Amino acid sequence: MAEKKGNVLTTKQETFVRELVSGKSQRQAYKVAYGCETWKDASIDRKACEMFANVKIKARYDELIAECNKKTLWTRERAINELVEMLRDSKEDKNYQARYNSIRELNTIVGLYPKETKEVELNINKPDKDNLKNLISKVKGVKK
């Protein structure tokens, strides 16, 4: 829970915030926190919106989101560090395949490879058999 005096949330408020951070909608989070499944959705939505507008709730939400983002960045940073270490080891061992794989993976992580895309034109005004066959052949040609 938030540590500052005056900013401590109730157990239900903390549950609401944690559910939001986990990816639930305001309605879903409110239902979990307050067990109000018999309420009308409009009533739950109104209460959830009011709760999220609360300064203490918003501050705790922002705090948890920042923690999640920090962990995510650390994970990416660690992955890069591990790959760099593998790259160095493969150079010393003259393991060219491992070196190549490490370089390729690093380039993927930092986004040096553009995503391959292919435009497919679809004519939905003519839903005939030939048009469908043409579309299928175009889609098969798109690399995933």
Rank of each mutant, 00 (worst) to 15 (best):
residue 33 A to C: 07
residue 101 N to G: 00
residue 21 V to R: 00
residue 112 L to H: 06
residue 133 K to L: 11
residue 71 K to V: 03
residue 105 E to T: 15
residue 106 L to N: 10
residue 89 D to W: 06
residue 26 Q to N: 05
residue 61 Y to S: 02
residue 61 Y to Q: 04
residue 100 Y to I: 02
residue 33 A to H: 00
residue 112 L to C: 10
residue 123 N to E: 07
residue 81 N to F: 13
residue 57 I to T: 01
residue 22 S to C: 07
residue 17 V to D: 02
residue 53 A to E: 12
residue 43 S to V: 06
residue 112 L to T: 04
residue 70 K to I: 07
residue 111 G to P: 07
residue 74 W to M: 09
residue 57 I to G: 00
residue 128 D to G: 00
residue 140 K to E: 10
residue 97 Q to S: 09
residue 44 I to F: 06
residue 47 K to C: 08
residue 138 K to S: 15
residue 64 L to A: 03
residue 36 C to F: 02
residue 29 A to T: 06
residue 67 E to M: 09
residue 34 Y to M: 10
residue 115 K to A: 14
residue 131 N to C: 01
residue 28 Q to A: 15
residue 31 K to T: 15
residue 99 R to V: 01
residue 55 V to W: 01
residue 114 P to I: 10
residue 52 F to P: 00
residue 67 E to I: 11
residue 61 Y to W: 10
residue 104 R to K: 15
residue 116 E to V: 10
residue 130 D to P: 04
residue 90 S to E: 05
residue 66 A to N: 02
residue 124 I to V: 15
residue 14 E to C: 00
residue 100 Y to C: 04
residue 97 Q to F: 12
residue 37 E to G: 01
residue 84 V to K: 13
residue 46 R to A: 05
residue 115 K to E: 13
residue 65 I to S: 02
residue 85 E to G: 09
residue 36 C to K: 10
residue 77 E to G: 08
residue 100 Y to L: 11
residue 125 N to G: 12
residue 67 E to Y: 08
residue 108 T to M: 09
residue 132 L to Y: 08
residue 98 A to W: 05
residue 41 D to E: 15
residue 122 L to C: 06
residue 43 S to I: 06
residue 89 D to N: 09
residue 85 E to W: 09
residue 123 N to C: 04
residue 77 E to H: 12
residue 95 N to T: 03
residue 115 K to T: 14
residue 117 T to Y: 08
residue 95 N to I: 05
residue 30 Y to W: 08
residue 56 K to A: 14
residue 93 D to S: 09
residue 48 A to G: 03
residue 108 T to V: 14
residue 79 A to G: 09
residue 35 G to D: 06
residue 104 R to G: 00
residue 104 R to V: 07
residue 12 K to G: 02
residue 65 I to T: 06
residue 101 N to M: 11
residue 11 T to D: 13
residue 64 L to K: 04
residue 54 N to E: 14
residue 64 L to F: 09
residue 11 T to R: 07
residue 64 L to M: 12
residue 98 A to E: 11
residue 137 S to R: 13
residue 56 K to Y: 05
residue 139 V to Q: 05
residue 37 E to R: 05
residue 122 L to K: 00
residue 102 S to C: 04
residue 88 R to I: 10
residue 98 A to K: 14
residue 17 V to H: 08
residue 122 L to Y: 03
